[in-house]
Design a protein around this nucleic acid. Structure first.
Lengths: 193, 193
DNA sequence: CCTACCGATCGGTAGG
DNA sequence: CCTACCGATCGGTAGG
């Protein structure tokens, strides 16, 4: 049923590297490990990529791009702040669940980026966190949300959303939308009846 | 005001290693890095420790022990399930905030443990998660909590609690108890008024 | 705790 | 994409 897309060697390298970086961590994954998975010699990798770190950069910045793309949909949400937060959670979780391997690398291995990529990455992260904070602040000002420390709230919410990369199984019975919606519901309404 | 405790060389090694493992990751930290921070030669480390991994084992299992110790206090809580969950959150967060460096290593670097330590570690993690699930299940059965997937709830709650290692500053104006209590409140009652 | 050193492995290049 | 190889660095040991 799926359209078979011919993958370039470079795409194959990035895909296998993503899996390995997730499993073993970036630093503990050698180019020889990667080559072996692809059935070629380590030296041959360098016909397609410039360096080990280049692969990490691709993974991290592609994920960042996807998160920013997803936000466009959030901006179209015209409901109240709770609806905006739910929409943000759903869009965010959709990006994560679409590629849990790349997400894991994105969340855990970015610190191995060298400058200036590291600074750029952190700036993007900060920007994104600010967007969540804005929803929280607006919702508090309008009286819709409880008053509380915005940053504390943002960190707590994002940690719940981020963690989905670690347990979401595309083969399970929850769609990305359902996961995002359920998470938003728990965050907004709480556990207690 | 603090009591000055004489630290053994071994303790100093473990302390500095914890900081480095957190900053750079376990795999990317070399024994020469560690020796340099201590002002000695890398070879000299081996008079005090058996191997690099032994340090990681100590960090991970000491944290695990502290989490289990903390649970004893949770068991003494005799209130309703919401009170039990709050108590569990507070005790858990207290352990994390007491040592954010070791917690970061505990949460991120355990996968570099070799067998049989890895299996033992995962078994303990599973045990601990089960304790949270039990509170959730009991609270649902008693009608105190909303019905929902227990595992999903547990993962969401724990991810919020775990993430405190990443932003808690002992120098800030929130005590560990306050952080745990606020997190529990957000989880139990939600963001919405 | 040091000097001296080990074999293994690392990311990457030259040249085909 | 391969063979052949580079200098650097790794965790760790021997012997003092």
């Amino acid at each position: 049923m799926e359209t078979v897309v011919k993958k370039t060697r470079k795409q194959q390298i990035e895909e296998k590297a993503t899996k390995l970086f997730r499993q073993k961590g970036y630093a503990a994954t050698s180019m020889r490990d990667l080559a072996q998975v692809l059935g070629i010699e380590a030296a041959s990798l360098y016909s397609h990529i410039k360096s080990k770190e280049e692969i990490l950069q691709k993974i991290c910045f592609r994920m960042a791009d996807e998160f920013f793309d997803a936000w466009k949909e959030v901006e179209m949400e015209s409901g109240n702040h709770a609806a905006k937060m739910e929409k943000a959670a759903i869009c965010y979780v959709k990006v994560i669940t679409k590629n849990t391997d790349a997400s894991a690398v994105f969340f855990h291995e970015w610190r191995h980026l060298s400058e200036p990529y590291l600074s750029e990455f952190l700036a993007m992260k900060n920007d994104y966190e600010g967007r969540f904070i804005k929803i929280l602040r607006d919702g508090m000002q309008s009286g819709e949300f409880h008053e509380a420390d915005e940053k504390f709230m943002m960190l707590t919410i994002l940690s719940s959303l981020n963690w989905t990369h670690n347990w979401y199984k595309p083969s399970g019975n929850l769609s990305p939308e359902e996961v995002g919606s359920k998470l938003a519901n728990l965050i907004l309404n709480g556990l207690k009846k």
